[in-house]
Simulated scan of single mutants.
Amino acid sequence: MELLINIDVDDLEHGIGFYEAGLGLQLGRRLFDGTVAEMHGACAPIYLLAKAPGTVATARADARRDYARHWTPVHLDFVVENLEAAIDRAMRAGAEIEDWPQDFDWGRQARLSDPFGHGLCFIEWKGEGYGAAMRP
């Protein structure tokens, strides 16, 4: 099975700029008449999809795309080498910090949102990472 990650953005150039400058991803290809940008640098390709605000998200619900900060039960975690440096880089590119770094047995985590209202987390592993939380 292959995993592809798709992120709706209201401005494709702004999305490319943020994910390049803020997360260090690189633009691969532009697809579908320039409405999709394929980003590389994570363990799975991330596709930024140009979708206008207010457009219908699905035919099965009345939900419309809104790029203000919103909550969703699915978000992306990016494992980083240096949490403070990653936060600084993302914020300089337009991310907003939501929860400053917290310490856990498995490492440290900070919660942010991208300029399009999507939540994301940065994780800096400590020792065995999540494996440390599995011990009885």
Rank of each mutant, 00 (worst) to 15 (best):
L48R: 05
E84D: 14
I46P: 03
G41H: 07
D88F: 00
V80N: 02
T72W: 11
M91K: 15
F78D: 12
A50F: 06
L83W: 04
A86D: 05
I46Q: 05
P73F: 01
D88H: 02
T72S: 15
F78V: 09
I46L: 14
V74M: 15
V80D: 03
V74H: 07
T72L: 09
I46G: 04
V74E: 13
L83G: 08
A52Y: 02
I87A: 00
D62G: 15
E84G: 09
A50D: 12
T58W: 07
P73A: 01
H75T: 02
L76I: 14
R65Q: 12
A50C: 06
H40L: 15
R69I: 10
Y47Q: 01
I46D: 02
A63M: 09
V79M: 00
V56L: 11
H70C: 01
A44T: 08
Y47T: 01
T55C: 13
T55L: 10
L49G: 03
V56K: 07
Y67M: 08
I87R: 00
K51F: 02
N82P: 05
M91G: 02
V80C: 03
A44Y: 14
C43K: 09
R64W: 04
G41Y: 08
G41W: 06
D77L: 05
D88Y: 00
K51W: 03
N82I: 03
L48Y: 09
A85I: 06
T72I: 03
C43S: 15
E84S: 10
M91N: 11
V74R: 14
G54S: 13
A61H: 15
D66E: 12
L76C: 10
Y47V: 00
R65H: 13
L76N: 05
V79K: 00
P45M: 14
L49T: 04
A44W: 15
R89T: 13
A61T: 15
I46M: 14
P53V: 00
